[in-house]
């Protein structure tokens, strides 16, 4: 049986990462920006696991596991910040959070 070449997986990871990067740049809504960041993290995870499989290093899976945990912690805090932002500003634009500049 022919296996899927590793290149396919890494290309997919790169594609997803780039799409996430577009989202971070283009979107103005903090929730959507946050979701794009999650997409980028997922793409990184995919490349970790791909290398873990093709290089026979279990470390890749361990890193991916730690990454998922860190992402979960990040989401808890990030969403709490977004909720606080929405509550105080009633705005859905990230530029509304530039209060510290003035």
């Amino acid at each position: 049986m022919t296996d899927v070449p590793m290149f396919y997986y890494t290309t997919l990871a790169a594609l997803l990462f780039s799409i996430g990067a577009v989202g971070v740049i283009v979107k103005r809504n903090p929730i959507l920006i946050f979701m794009s960041i999650e997409l980028m993290l997922n793409a990184v995870n995919l490349s970790f696991i791909t290398y873990s499989r093709y290089l026979h290093f279990l470390e890749g899976q361990v890193y991916a596991f730690l990454l998922i945990t860190v992402a979960a912690a990040e989401v808890a805090v990030g969403l709490a910040i977004i909720v606080a932002l929405f509550r105080s500003k009633r705005e859905v634009d990230v530029d509304a959070a530039s209060l510290m500049k003035e």
Binding site: I31, E38, L46, I49, R53, Q61, A64, V75, L79
Partner: peptide, 29 residues
């Protein structure tokens, strides 16, 4: 895809943590 890469544990953790917890939190908000 993780299943296809034989990372069985990670594949299930991905669903439990990301799909099951993180995204539910997003949807809540």
């Amino acid at each position: 895809l993780y299943l296809m890469l034989h990372a069985y544990f990670l594949s299930v953790v991905q669903i439990v943590v990301y799909a099951g917890a993180v995204m539910v939190l997003f949807l809540f908000v």
